[in-house]
Simulated assay, not measured.
Amino acid sequence: MSTFSSNQTSSLPSWRQPDSVPFLKIENINKRFGDFTAVNNVSLDIYQNELFCLLGGSGSGKSTLLRMLAGFEAPSAGRILIDGVDMSNIPPWERPVNMMFQSYALFPHLNVEANVAFGLKREHLGKNEIQRRVNDMLDMVQLGHLAKRKPHMLSGGQRQRVALARALVKEPKLLLLDEPLGALDKKLREETQFELIRIQEELGITFVVVTHDQEEAMTLATRIGVMNHGQIIQTAEPQDVYEYPSNRFVAQFIGNVNLFDGVVIEDERDSVVIQCKDTQNLIQVNHGISCAPNQGVSIAIRPEKIRLSRTPLESTINTAVGMITDMAYMGSQSVYKVRLTSGKEVRITQPNSVRDTSDRLTWDEKVYLDWDADSSVVLTS
């Protein structure tokens, strides 16, 4: 192997390197509560220094899986290995793991400093060592100046950082976070996401975050595991989950998407052509798929990939015609709902790149839609 190739391989993230050893290995985990299966045969590899997000709706099994990693629930089948050690018979308090709960669970009668020091005191560390580690952690989360305040004197974002400091001060190998930003308002949540990324990168501790918020997962994660009905449906980097969903569920769960139904009429190695009843035209997608002749498929197109125009289009491939039925100005972008001649409703977003609105599209206008062959994805399930 050349020097260039070797360097190129080493610069890849761990999950892209075929010989990387997972730091956290989940093997065929099941969890049943009576007749109900909460987690169904999940296998997953997570690597050192990752910020991995388990993303799913209520009842998808993500929090149950997190509790099994912490040791609060015992698997019905399968096993969990952390840094090569089987955790099957290791109680929660002996695992190299700490957990930050959604409620933060701060002690109201203790000040910030004492809350962060609580776990260290239970380990009977020396007073100077405890003070050093607490001071270092409070500086990291930028709360050193509030060390003597009680939790009720703090904002929601500050309480969140106290809980994070308390979880990290014990220097766990793995930190589990259950909806860590769920109690914050939208603006503060967005600001705190970047703060969480900064802290994780600075410490180099592996984080596993459970969230139902798609935008939060897209912002935080090195990779996302999308869960539904106790199973992981797709595991990929955020961009790939968004741009290349593995099925209709992922496409619809992550962001907004337009789904068109059609039948494959031409399937080549690097492209596929679909007869689409929704657009009443042909759709070409620049990647091949494995399917039977005349198979029914779905085509997923994100709203920002579609162009709108008042001018009729010459091509009948990757085009459609419709009428604007609704629109909303959202500041940075405008959202349009268009009813195609087939009756299908399509959502389209366009950036508001100029201030002049005199020539902007509006209600009840006839419009022409088109998109690039690289902009859509074919889904067979």
Rank of each mutant, 00 (worst) to 15 (best):
L176F: 07
G157P: 11
E129Y: 09
W93C: 12
S14Q: 14
V141G: 05
V338Y: 00
D139I: 09
S375C: 05
S14A: 15
S103N: 15
T37N: 15
R198V: 06
F101I: 12
S103R: 15
D364Q: 13
E191M: 03
G343Y: 06
I82W: 08
Y47E: 03
L340Q: 03
N318S: 07
Q200D: 02
R198D: 09
E243C: 05
F52R: 02
G262I: 07
S358I: 04
Y336N: 01
L181A: 08
G288S: 14
A167M: 05
W93V: 14
Q295K: 15
F118G: 00
A38P: 02
E129S: 14
D372H: 10
G71Q: 13
K127D: 12
I299N: 02
M137H: 08
V257R: 00
A236M: 10
V273C: 03
E129P: 01
L379G: 02
G71I: 13
S43T: 11
L24N: 01
D19E: 15
A38G: 11
V112S: 01
E191D: 13
G343P: 06
D374F: 09
T219E: 04
S358H: 06
M140N: 11
V250N: 00
G57M: 08
S332P: 00
L168A: 05
L340S: 04
R339I: 07
A165M: 07
N28I: 03
K186W: 00
F23H: 11
L24C: 12
K187W: 01
R347W: 01
H109I: 09
F52V: 06
C276F: 05
Q333W: 04
V112G: 02
L143P: 05
K62E: 11
D261F: 03
M100H: 06
S43D: 02
G59N: 09
M137T: 14
A70M: 11
H152C: 08
S353M: 09
I289T: 12
E202P: 00
I224F: 08
T362R: 03
D178C: 13
L65V: 09
L177I: 09
K186R: 14
M323A: 05
L259A: 06
P91A: 14
D83T: 07
F118L: 07
G119Q: 03
A165Y: 04
F249C: 08
Q48Y: 08
M68W: 08
S342I: 11
K277S: 14
P22C: 13
Q200W: 03
V297T: 10
N40I: 06
N247K: 08
H287M: 11
V257M: 01
S58I: 13
D35V: 14
M327S: 07
A217W: 04
F101T: 09
T380D: 13
R67I: 07
G71M: 12
L188Q: 06
N128A: 15
G78Y: 07
E216M: 12
V250T: 04
Q214P: 08
N256P: 00
L174V: 08
L196V: 10
L282D: 04
L54G: 05
S353A: 10
H124G: 02
L143A: 10
S353C: 01
S290L: 14
Y244D: 10
L361G: 00
G59K: 06
A163E: 11
V297S: 09
V264P: 01
M323H: 13
L110F: 10
K186T: 11
